[in-house]
Design a protein around this nucleic acid. Structure first.
Ligand SMILES: [Mn+2]
Ligand SMILES: [Mn+2]
Ligand SMILES: [Zn+2]
Ligand SMILES: [Zn+2]
Lengths: 152, 152
DNA sequence: GGGCTTGTCGCCACAGTATGCAATAACAAA
DNA sequence: TTTGTTATTGCATACTGTGGCGACAAGCCC
């Protein structure tokens, strides 16, 4: 049988550190995880979990959904991903989040924009001061109607 | 066969008007819709779509999921319901929304609170002024950690 | 290299939600 | 009351995501 460990391309930073990060936590570096990491390394911005699964299957059709979903959870714990939910509740991942930001979705045209930390600052501060609540900005999705789409 | 039109209990306001509201729009009053409306009339605050389905099945085990989900959409269009999404993206309905409000969810303990229009005012105003974006406050779910649960 | 430990995979079953389609039934008009 | 129109149902099916479980294999130690 052919060797499975595709020594193909070395991973770019910070993905080349994932193996070590996993080992530090007593977790393992498997072909399935390497495949997803390779896919992620070629992705930037926002992707759906389902899209990532599809990309993996394009390379290895034997890819199992639950393995991908579980690996996404692990990588999120390592801080390499953050997820939020689209207007219909489906998972959307943000790869290599630089500055934390929320998301703005128009229910009319489907347009999407980012919400900067400064835009949310007032809400975050209000909830922190009054309730001691720490908002997870990355997970925040604000739905409504953009200028072009007008009132519902 | 037995008559299906359970003339059982007359519906309380504003549910007693649903039939007329439907007819005004060329839509129909069916036993399936009546059943869900009866369940909703006994519900207050927030419910999951799945919980509503279950409640319907408790009364009529023949209840079909897609019929319930479709009816929920219709009733939301009539303004009798609003929905948002829990932290995992599942649908949560707000029955007979009085004042519009958003939701605050703690990812640690699962605690839930409401966000008043005043709490969100700054964010809403910012997005309206800068982008002409009209926020749907009812659909807003802010996830994070409450005071007791501390930082993640 | 050869074992051991235990994290992970593959598989299955299921929860929750959405959609196309043909058969049915609600409603209104006659 | 009968008929005709067409909204709605039921069904089959698909999609997204979760969780249990036994078989497997990654990594450590010798
Ligand atoms: Mn929604
Ligand atoms: Mn989430
Ligand atoms: Zn728009
Ligand atoms: Zn908490």
């Amino acid at each position: 049988m052919a060797s499975v460990t595709t020594r193909s391309t070395p991973l770019p930073a910070p993905w080349d550190g994932v193996r070590a990060q996993l080992h530090d936590r007593g977790l393992r570096w498997t072909p399935q995880r390497r495949l997803l990491v390779e896919v992620l390394a070629r992705t930037d911005g926002h992707v759906t979990a389902a899209e990532l699964l599809e990309s993996c299957r394009a390379i290895d059709p034997a890819t199992i959904p639950s393995t991908v979903y579980r690996t996404l959870d692990v990588l999120e714990e390592l801080g390499l991903l953050r997820h939020a939910h689209g207007p219909e509740g489906r998972e959307e991942y943000h790869v290599l989040p630089r500055e934390e930001h929320g998301h703005l979705h128009c229910a009319g045209c489907g347009g999407r924009w980012e919400i900067g930390a400064d835009d949310a600052a007032a809400l975050v501060a209000t909830l922190a001061a009054r309730d001691g609540f720490a908002v997870d900005l990355s997970h925040l999705v604000v739905v409504g109607r953009c200028r072009g789409c007008g009132a519902g």
